[in-house]
């Protein structure tokens, strides 16, 4: 399940929902990305491309389901203006075994960071700057 929204989400509720998916579930792995308040960051705004974002996330989920034995997947990504400590993204993966759950969770985050059309703008002491893409993120996505 893919959700792109401005509202916050409840990681506990989302993990519980996937944990109850089926009696075949033996492992649920999750990742929560937060706004890091370092270097005097006061806020971060996430812009996205409505429509393409959902399509890309659905394609990434389909790729993960093709590569690993997954019972359920949840990806929630927020957009809009967020403050340090706010949640940005949630990935939850349910599988029969932990190996597939861990791997698919990391894969989903790595591909999301390089293929889903979101852009971060940081605010620091009145200045607004668009964040540059990191080559490290490309390297992490290319490992898979």
């Amino acid at each position: 399940m893919i959700r792109v929204q401005s509202e916050d989400f409840d990681p506990g509720a989302e993990i519980a929902r996937l944990s109850e998916h089926s009696t075949a579930t033996g492992a649920v792995a999750s990742f929560v990305g937060l706004v890091r308040g370092d270097d005097d960051l006061t806020a971060m705004t996430l812009e996205h491309y409505p429509g393409m974002t959902e399509r890309q996330l659905e394609a990434i989920e389909a790729e993960a389901r093709c590569r690993w034995q997954l019972l359920d997947v949840t990806v929630i990504h927020r957009h809009g203006r967020l403050l340090p400590g706010d949640r940005i993204v949630l990935v939850v993966v349910a599988s029969s075994h932990r190996g597939d759950a861990f791997a698919a969770c990391e894969f989903l985050m790595d591909w999301l960071k390089t293929k889903a059309p979101f852009w971060k703008m940081e605010e620091r002491s009145g200045r607004q700057d668009w964040v540059d893409a990191k080559s490290e993120d490309d390297s992490r996505a290319e490992r898979w």
Binding site: H48, H77, P117, F118, D132, D137
Partner: peptide, 24 residues
């Protein structure tokens, strides 16, 4: 869908330009 510079574009297409993505 992501496109490369050599791809043709038609009059009814939606074409978008943006920097490398930085979500997550």
């Amino acid at each position: 869908d992501f496109a490369t510079p050599d791809q043709p574009v038609g009059p009814n297409d939606e074409l978008a330009f943006f920097p490398p993505v930085t979500g997550g």
